[in-house]
C-alpha cells in the first residue's frame, strides 16, 4: 500500500493526520457549505452584509418554500426528471444490444471499426453537432419539445454506454455463450436469458452515470429548448438567478435543489457510480 499506512507512523503524525482530514474536507467543501448557509439565512442578513458569518436566524423551510411558491422551480425539476429518466432507459437499452453485437461475434470483422466509431463520437465537441441537430429538430417539429431533447441525449449517450457495455460483455466467459449456441439456443434468447442477467451491475453503473450527466446538462437544453415550460432545472436556475436579483438566499436554495438529485443518486449507488467512472483506469 502506498503511501505507507499511517498506523505505522509516530503517534504525533497519526494525530496530525486525523486532524488534517476534517480540516481539508472543510476547506474543500467550503463553497458548498457557504451556499448552504446562505440558503438558510434571512434576507436581512444579506442586506446587512452578513454573507459568510453565522446566520441571525435559521430559515431553512421558509426559504425553500419561497423558492417553490414564487418561481417555476417545481416545473423545472419535473422537466429534468422527464428528460433524464427516458434518456437513461433508451441509451442503456440500445447499448446492451449494441454491446452484445460488438463483443460476442468473433468472426464479425466490423466489430472493432464500429466500436471505435462509438468511442470517437463520444468525445466530439458538442458545437460540431449543434447546428445540424438543431436544424433537424426544427424540421421534424421536435424543436422545443422534451422528446426532441431526449432523442438527442439518448443517441449521444449511446456512445459512452456502448463503450462500457461492450467491454463488460467481452470480459464475460465466452464458453458460456458458445455452449449455449451448440445447444441450439437462438441468438436473441442467449442475449435475453444468459447475458442480460449477467450485465446487471453494468446496467446499474451506467444508469447512475447517465442520470448524472443528463441531469447536469446545460448546453443542449439551451440549444434545443426555448419555452419556459420545458426547461430543465440547470437552465431554470440560471433564469431564477435573474429573477431573484440579489436575493442570494433564494438563488442558493434553488442551486442546491438542482444539485441534490445527482448527489443523492451518487450516495445511494456509490459503488456502481465509481465503477462506471473509473472504467479503464485500472487495466489497459
Amino acid at each position: 500500500m502506498f503511501p505507507a499506512p499511517i498506523q505505522k507512523a509516530s503517534p504525533s503524525a497519526q494525530l496530525t493526520y486525523k486532524l488534517a482530514l476534517p480540516i481539508a474536507l472543510f476547506v474543500w467543501l467550503l463553497p458548498l457549505l457557504a451556499i448552504f448557509m446562505t440558503s438558510i439565512r434571512p434576507a436581512a442578513d444579506i442586506n446587512a452584509g452578513n454573507v459568510f458569518g453565522w446566520p441571525s436566524q435559521f430559515q431553512l423551510i421558509e426559504n425553500y418554500v419561497t423558492v417553490f411558491t414564487t418561481s417555476d422551480a417545481a416545473v423545472y425539476l419535473w422537466n429534468s426528471l422527464r428528460i433524464t429518466v427516458p434518456t437513461v432507459i433508451v441509451s442503456v437499452a440500445l447499448a446492451c444490444l449494441a454491446g452484445y453485437g460488438l463483443a460476442i461475434y468473433r468472426g464479425f470483422r466490423w466489430a472493432l471499426p464500429l466500436f471505435f466509431l462509438f468511442v470517437a463520437g463520444n468525445f466530439v465537441p458538442f458545437q460540431i453537432l449543434m447546428i445540424p441537430v438543431r436544424d433537424l429538430s426544427v424540421r421534424t417539429d421536435l424543436y422545443d419539445t422534451i422528446t426532441g431533447l431526449v432523442l438527442f441525449h439518448a443517441a449521444f449517450q449511446t456512445g459512452f454506454c456502448t463503450l462500457f457495455m461492450r467491454n463488460f460483455i467481452k470480459a464475460l466467459p465466452y464458453e458460456l455463450i458458445e455452449s449455449a449456441r451448440i445447444e441450439g439456443v437462438g441468438e436473441f434468447k442467449i442475449f435475453w436469458y444468459l447475458v442480460l442477467p449477467l450485465v446487471r451491475p453494468a446496467i446499474a453503473a451506467l444508469a447512475v452515470l447517465i442520470f448524472t450527466f443528463v441531469w447536469n446538462d446545460f448546453f443542449w437544453a439551451t440549444v434545443l429548448i426555448q419555452s419556459d415550460e420545458y426547461l430543465p432545472i440547470t437552465v431554470g436556475v440560471r433564469s431564477l438567478n435573474g429573477q431573484f436579483v440579489n436575493q442570494w438566499q433564494l438563488v442558493s436554495a434553488a442551486s442546491l435543489l438542482a444539485a441534490l438529485p445527482p448527489v443523492l443518486m451518487f450516495f445511494a449507488m456509490q459503488k456502481h457510480f465509481i465503477a462506471g467512472l473509473t472504467l479503464g483506469a485500472t487495466k489497459g
Binding site: 458548498l32 438542482a258 444539485a259
Partner: peptide, 13 residues
C-alpha cells in the same frame, strides 16, 4: 462531491 454537482451550480457559487 464537486464532480457530481452541475457546472451551472459551480459557476453560480
Amino acid at each position: 462531491f464537486p464532480f457530481v454537482i452541475s457546472q451551472v451550480v459551480v459557476g453560480l457559487i
